[in-house]
Amino acid sequence: MSNIITAHNLGKSYGSFQALNNINLNIQKGQIVGIIGANGAGKTTLLNSILGLCSYDGDLNVLGFDPYNQRDEMMKKICFISDVATLPKWIRVCEAIDFVEGVHKSFDRQKALGFLAGTNIPLDKKIRHLSKGMIVQLHLALIMSIDARILVLDEPTLGLDIIYRKKFYRQLLEDFFDEDRTILVTTHQVDEIENILSEVIFIREGNIILSANMDDIVDQWMVLNPATENIDAARMMAPVSEQTMLGRTSFIFKDQSRDRLAQLGEVSRVSLSDLFVTLMEGD
């Protein structure tokens, strides 16, 4: 498989604050990668480095480009939606389409108009007159009409209601994603994207604490809800974490035999948010 993003000892500091700490990373084509971390963990700094929006130390290679020095060439193949990177308020919908068509060789105007036809976004309105949901829909329509290799999403659905959020990811999967493309996504609503991710990267304080394939995570990590009489037995098996909620105790195990755990109670798949909390609280 071919790596489309490789980072070697990637670092970034702001004064004495180390936002990224010698990160090593390999991301392959055809993946949907979730980058998960608390606020200030370094997610956005990592994405900004990949997008060539900030300088960095170490080696970073994205689609064969050096992002910081070759941003304009590289952005022909990469698209980016962020909660903070809004479309300018003064631009009209039709002007935004004209502009993207003007600067992107691979932009397909008909496709964009097709996507917009499925919404109630008026072409002659300025962005300032559109709702937050419409702006994200427009941005997504523009970006899905570019034949990009990598799509970077930084909190793309922040501030959207649940209907728009679901629609956003569904459209992304149906109309954009294929085995030649890669999606990097950060979000706080981990549960909503859990089932579309193929890779996950946990970041804490500028370090990658886990980078794994979703299938491997499901194989390695499991949750045990033991019967009350088996709680002590479960504790003996070295769980990674223990949680009691509403009188029910559950354990998270790593690399345990599924059969042995099943003898103590119900074994289920670990959710990313639980795994995240476990790893963040560990050490």
Binding site: R71, D72, E73, M74, A85, L87, P88, V103, H104
Partner: peptide, 20 residues
């Protein structure tokens, strides 16, 4: 203005150089 209204990240997500 582009920094004030945060649109700079949109402009920078387009394949045009800063000098252009």
């Amino acid at each position: 203005d582009e920094r004030k209204d945060n649109s700079i990240l949109f402009w920078k997500s387009m394949p045009v150089s800063d000098s252009q």
